[in-house]
């Protein structure tokens, strides 16, 4: 079958999440909604703003990247987690991962910059 620019992605029986962080980002969103931090309409608006941006992949592989960006923006808007705080902690997590021997669980305490 010839595939063109607007082709629908192949419907392979892909797993629900392709990487663990996607499942975690999804589950955090559901948990925060259950907690009453935001309404589902607020969430849909935030997600919609991200997936509408030009450059979204036509095969949908970057869907959870948009999901994460939407969650971060909503949490920043609610004053729960500012971008600067997330940037700092994410960098610490990356350093911690790098300093953790392979096969050992990655803990934030392993960040040598701590």
């Amino acid at each position: 079958m010839s595939r063109h620019e607007g082709a629908l992605p192949d419907d392979i029986d892909e797993p629900v999440f392709s990487e663990p962080w996607q499942a975690e980002a999804f589950a955090m969103t559901v948990a925060l909604h259950d907690k009453g931090l935001f309404s589902w309409s607020e969430w849909a608006d935030s997600l919609s703003a991200e997936v509408k941006k030009p450059g979204a992949a036509s095969d949908g592989h970057d869907y959870y990247e948009h999901w994460l960006a939407a969650l971060e923006k909503l949490l920043a808007a609610k004053g729960v987690a500012g971008k600067g705080d997330v940037d700092t902690l994410a960098a610490a997590w990356e350093r911690a991962a790098h300093a953790t021997p392979h096969g050992k669980p990655i803990l934030l305490e392993n960040d040598p910059g701590l």
Binding site: E19, A25, M28, L71, A81, A90, A91, W93, E94
Partner: peptide, 13 residues
């Protein structure tokens, strides 16, 4: 970077 940001959010939340 995505996994690290998710961990960061989890830590804060």
């Amino acid at each position: 970077p995505f996994a690290a940001r998710v961990r960061a959010l989890e830590t804060i939340l």
